[in-house]
């Protein structure tokens, strides 16, 4: 489903060059829920950018559903994000001038889906995240947790093969974060969507079946977790 083969990503050149990802290789199977951990600047977000086709690798190969990202044109990578990859970010990235339902439907509108179908799928996505009652609200009138639910609904509405979640709980309190993680996990289990989660927080990383730990762009640790939901009291002290 997602395969990295000796992938490196270098920003800049000469003495100021920064190796964000360094000779990274892994393969995420379809329907898996993996987490990426590591300190700031370890290259976690760059891994997501590479998968979403937002930036090409400097060397190596990134394959998504069997297609080499590096060979994709700008339009093809845009289509990939529109149809196959749902992206959830820490800052929600909602369009402030659109209502919640319009935000959710935007990828479908961009894809030229008929409005009637857009409405149906948006309704379904909002129900999945329990936000139907806030459909007509603008982002500024929603709490951080609600905005993130809308962002997840936007990722889900395209019925993606992959959800990339970059610190989705970073702007939320513990309870809100847990609710969002429960939701992502539920979606993963229900729809068999592949999830790659970037997080600093070991509690949320524990939602994944497997955790990769990056340091300076290299894979430092690869842990497979037992197949059970995380204990509720794990993060209370934190």
């Amino acid at each position: 489903m997602i395969e990295f083969q000796s992938v490196s990503k270098v920003f800049g050149s000469g003495p100021t060059a920064v190796r964000s990802v360094d000779d990274l290789s892994f393969r995420i199977p379809k329907g898996a829920f993996w987490a990426l951990m590591g300190p700031s600047g370890s290259g976690k977000s760059t891994v997501l950018h590479l998968i979403a086709g937002l930036t090409p690798p400097s060397s190596g190969s990134v394959q998504v559903e069997g297609v080499d990202i590096a060979r994709m044109s700008s339009s093809e990578s845009a289509a990939l994000r529109r149809r196959r990859v749902g992206y959830v970010l820490q800052t929600f990235n909602l369009l402030p001038f659109l209502t919640a339902e319009e935000n959710v439907g935007m990828p479908l509108v961009l894809d030229g889906v008929r409005q009637r179908e857009v409405d149906t799928r948006v309704q379904r996505a909002l129900e999945m995240v329990n936000m139907s009652h806030r459909a007509a609200h603008h982002p500024m009138h929603l709490s951080g947790g609600e905005q993130q639910r809308i962002a997840i609904a936007r990722a889900l509405v395209i019925e993606p093969a992959i959800i990339l979640a970059d610190e989705p709980t970073g702007n939320l309190d513990r309870a809100g974060g847990r609710a969002v993680m429960d939701l992502i996990q539920e979606v993963n289990e229900r729809t068999q969507v592949t999830v790659l989660l970037v997080t600093h927080d070991p509690v949320f990383a524990a939602y994944g079946q497997r955790v990769l730990r990056l340091v300076d762009g290299r894979l430092q640790q690869d842990m497979t977790l037992p197949d059970k939901p995380p204990a509720l009291d794990l993060g209370v002290a934190g």
Partner: peptide
């Protein structure tokens, strides 16, 4: 806003 639209798949 335009960057966000690009993020969710709008072509240039």
């Amino acid at each position: 806003s335009m960057g966000r639209l690009r993020l969710i798949g709008a072509e240039p």
